[in-house]
Structures are given as structure tokens and as C-alpha cells.
Design a protein around this nucleic acid. Structure first.
Lengths: 206, 206
DNA sequence: CAACTATCTATACAGTGCAAAGATAGCGTA
DNA sequence: TACGCTATCTTTGCACTGTATAGATAGTTG
């Protein structure tokens, strides 16, 4: 009968039903609770109600699982960046600010995922989907800074400088805020996003 | 007799001689080789030629050791930032560029230490020395951006915005470069520091 | 209905951080 | 000089990790 042949390969009705998704969900939950440092594959399996070695059939090893999650996170980020600039009207400067805000908010609201996205030693950095999702997120920013119709550029092209400058500033701000370098508690950060960040972006001429 | 009473508390001539320093050295070496993710206290002890539990008397646990290393790294960074701006003459803009370059170069040349400095979950974030060293590094940049004689400000003061903007940009650039987001290999990064970074900093109006 | 394969379990191994208890070296003091 | 004391280090043990292997089982397919 083979129903659901091209339906995201889920719900085949096996022992577990859909372990792959269950593992991803459990892993995301665990990450949110304990952060990247507190993550463990065994605990993930435990939460999915399955034996320690069960994940092996769906993810070669821990890195593969984490890479899948990081990829999803990048896709999520890209979508949010797109949405943020779309919702901000047509003024370029306003759109850039809105996107920067969305970036930092993503980082703060989804700390563990954000941490993971750049924890390269824990990931398969060469994975195709992971790279593509990352490029996709950058493209959201780049098409805003350099213009919608600007020609796509190679990875090291010097004409990317403005976009990279913008990205560096926003990314650095997010990281420093998350890592407590500004001496901000969890609650202060929300205020920092509304007050400090716009001022910081004001020092950027693009 | 008690010689060496106030001589950095080293070389007391005990079982090992100076295990504390030996552990720090071994740990730094291990970090440089395997990165933060590959670090292990037991391997550190092994390299210092000592039993797995020996470090306990000098560092309460792994976090304490890593915090000590991160603190040293921050002090090192602060010194380099100071030196870089001093060596760059008197032109403010040139000094800022020189300091930014020194910052990124530090991050690239001492990757593992730089990673560790902000890996808060692995550190005792409240440790006094650690916080002080961090502030010290920031002060090196702040006194350059806001002026040597500017009054010292509290941690959340909005007048810090220009310094934070500068720091965010440089820090973000370093992180993105290290984490491979620019698609640069190890070797390309050196070129990026000389060519891309100045251009990026050019987009910053301080 | 039989065979086959994907999926999951059980078990095992090397490694980790850390705690607790025992050995020992060098100090101060009598 | 001899005694005891304490800081230093070793040994042992526990719970945990990731991953490899072999075996059980459920669903599908011929």
C-alpha cells in the first residue's frame, strides 16, 4: 500500500512510530533546559522513551543529531529575519534596525539553539544542509544591506564588507549580551535590545 | 627559615615542586591542541605526571581551573590591546584600528583561550578575578573610544554605547571568522584581518 | 506464509568528573 | 633530634558519557 511515501518520511508506524522526530523534539527540549554544555544523547534517548543506542539508526552519532538541530535553527532564523524586515515597511534603515532586533531577540529567546549554531566542533561543519541554511540566513541580511537586486557574490568577495560589518556588529552584540559581558541579567537584556541596540546600530554607516 | 614567602607562592619543593603552575601549563597546552571541547581534567593531570585527583588541592574542580586560565587570557588580552594602541601613534582613528586588529589577531592566534574566555557555563562567572580581568580588557577599548580622561561609568550606562558598538563589531567579526561563517580557511583569515577588517571598521562612526 | 530488513534492546568498553579514604613528605615545635 | 601535624598526592570507586557490537522483534515484501 505504501501510503505517505513522500510525506516527510514520518509516521511509518514502526516500533516507536516516529522516533526521528521524537528525538529531535526531545533534544530541543533538553537543550532548552540545560544548554549545549548540559546536552547528552543518552538523556535524549531516555526522554524519547527509548534505549541508549536507538538513535543510531536515525543519526549516525551525536554530531549528526546536533547538526540537524542547528540546521533547523538556521532556517528558523532566516525566516524570522525575512519576516522582520518585511514587516518593517520600506525604509531601508528601519528595516535594517528591525532585522537586527529580530536577530538579537532570536539569540536571547532561544539561547541554546543560538549557541549550538556556531559550536562548530560539535557539528558536521561540512554538512550540506547546515551550510545552505547558514548561507540562507546571511542572504536575508545581505539582500537588505546591498539591495534586493544586487548580484549574488562569492564567499570572500570584498564587496560583501558592508553586510559583514552589519552582521558582525549584531552578532557580536548578541554574543556579548548572552555571555554576560555587559554585566546584564536575564531581564535587563530585553531593555538593552530596545535601548542599547538601536544606539549601537546608529554608529553603523551602511 | 621560610624562604620565598612572598615569591608568587611557587617552588616550595613539595612532592611535585609546583604542581599548580604545571597544571596551568599542561591545561593551556591541552587546550591549544584539542580546543575547549577536547579538554579534560584527567588528561591535564596525566600530562603534569600526576594522579587524576591530584589537581583537587590546587583547583576545587574543573571549572576553577578553567576560570583561572580564562582570567589569565583576559589579562593577556588587555595587555595586548594596550600595547597595540600605544604603538599606533596618537591618531585616534588609527589607534582604534590597531586595537581592533590586535583583538582579532589574539582571537585567531589563541583560538582555544579566546573560546574559553566566553564559555560561561564552564566557568565560575562570578569569580572576582575573572570579572576584573574582563573589565580591564574592556577598559582598554573604552578609554580609547571615549577618551583617556572620560569618567568611569557603571556597567549599564547608555553613554557606553559607542564603546559597546566598537566592541560588538570587532568581537562579532572575530567570532564569525573563527566559526567559519565567512567560509574562510585557517590561512585566509590572516588576509581577512588585513583587508576585510579595516573595511568593516570603516563602516563604524565613533 | 516465509524471508528479509529496518528498527530497537542489551551489553560492553573506554573515557569522563568528582568524592572519599589512605599514604607520605616536609614543616614547625618541643 | 624526635614528634606530631598538615598539605600534598595516590588509590579506589561511583555515576555518567558516547559509541560499538550482537541479538531480538516488528512490518513489509515476495
Amino acid at each position: 500500500m505504501t501510503i505517505n511515501l513522500n510525506s516527510v518520511k514520518t509516521a511509518r508506524g514502526y516500533h516507536h512510530g516516529d522516533l526521528r522526530s521524537a528525538l529531535l523534539a526531545a533534544a530541543e527540549g533538553l537543550l532548552a533546559e540545560r544548554g549545549v554544555e548540559g546536552f547528552s544523547l543518552r538523556e535524549t534517548a531516555r526522554r524519547a522513551g527509548v534505549s541508549p543506542a536507538a538513535p543510531k539508526h536515525h543519526f549516525r552519532d551525536t554530531r549528526a543529531l546536533l547538526t540537524a538541530i542547528a540546521t533547523l535553527a538556521f532556517e528558523d532564523l532566516a525566516a524570522r529575519l525575512q519576516a522582520a524586515s518585511s514587516d518593517a515597511g520600506i525604509d531601508r534603515s528601519l528595516r535594517i534596525r528591525a532585522q537586527g532586533k529580530a536577530y538579537v531577540r532570536f539569540a536571547v529567546d532561544q539561547r541554546a539553539r543560538f549557541d549550538l549554531m556556531w559550536r562548530v566542533p560539535l557539528l558536521e561543519a561540512a554538512d550540506e544542509g547546515y551550510c545552505r541554511a547558514g548561507d540562507q540566513a546571511f542572504a536575508a541580511l545581505d539582500s537588505l544591506v546591498r539591495g534586493e537586486n544586487a548580484e549574488p557574490l562569492e564567499h570572500g568577495d570584498p564587496r560583501l564588507a558592508p553586510s559583514i560589518a552589519c552582521w558582525s556588529t549584531v552578532h557580536g552584540f548578541a554574543r556579548l549580551a548572552l555571555d554576560g559581558t555587559f554585566g546584564l541579567e536575564e531581564d535587563d537584556i530585553a531593555r538593552a535590545i530596545d535601548q542599547l541596540l538601536p544606539e549601537v546600530l546608529g554608529h553603523l554607516s551602511l
